[in-house]
């Protein structure tokens, strides 16, 4: 993505910019665009689709600007619009995800488990979880979010998508199973793997900084 100083043209924006936007300026929306793109790409793992959905969301925000009541920040409001677009898109796209791509997604899972657990299923020395710092404080720092996004990004793609549907988009796991056409137990296995991986990555990158990198 180019981080040009001049924002990309958005259809309808020029006209809209001349109207009274009830506190929403087109410039304010455009300033969120880079963040929205980053966010959508992480979700969708498809640059063009992310671009399209962000574009649609900005246009929708401009059209619906009169419904922005100022109860939330503009950013929260616009991200809610984007989130809905992503949900709709994933609902459509999930029909084309094959089950095999979900369950065969994670080739080095066994190896991952063996690193953490001994033959009896107990934590290996040095891998036993220790308490993390207070996340509220860490969440104020950019570095924390850089680690977090890195860890999300490194989930196996299909597992990452299921995890994001659950935790980011807020689907119930039953609904995810139904939409993806996979069994409940498969769904739980995939979510468990995603959580364990994310946790391991966050542990080494943030929770236990002296540990190995993820």
């Amino acid at each position: 993505m180019s981080r040009a100083s001049t924002p990309s043209p958005v259809p309808g924006l020029a006209a809209a910019a001349h109207e009274d936007m009830q506190g929403i300026s087109a410039e304010a929306l455009l300033s969120l665009r880079a963040d929205m793109l980053r966010f959508a790409r992480l979700q969708l793992r498809h640059a063009e689709t992310a671009e399209d959905l962000v574009q649609e969301s900005i246009e929708a925000a401009l059209r619906k600007s009169s419904t922005f009541a100022g109860r939330s920040t503009l950013k929260t409001w616009v991200f809610a619009i984007l989130r809905n677009r992503i949900v709709d898109h994933l609902r459509q796209a999930s029909r084309t995800v094959t089950m095999s791509s979900l369950v065969n997604d994670d080739e080095d899972w066994q190896q991952n488990l063996e690193t953490l657990f001994n033959d009896q299923g107990g934590w290996r020395d040095g891998r036993r979880p220790v308490a993390w710092p207070d996340p509220e404080q860490s969440m104020q720092t950019r570095q924390f979010w850089a680690v977090f996004e890195h860890c999300l990004d490194h989930l196996p793609p299909a597992a990452g998508r299921v995890f994001m549907m659950r935790e980011f988009l807020g689907f119930e796991s039953d609904e995810i199973c139904r939409q993806l056409g996979i069994s409940t137990s498969n769904c739980h296995v995939i979510l468990h793997r995603a959580r364990l991986r994310l946790r391991t990555c966050m542990d080494s990158g943030w929770g236990r900084p002296e540990g190995a990198s993820c």
Binding site: D35, P135, F148
Partner: peptide
């Protein structure tokens, strides 16, 4: 908790 904050766009606000 972190995912919820992230979904609300708080990661971005940390910038």
């Amino acid at each position: 908790q972190v995912m919820q904050a992230y979904a609300e766009g708080r990661a971005v606000a940390a910038d």
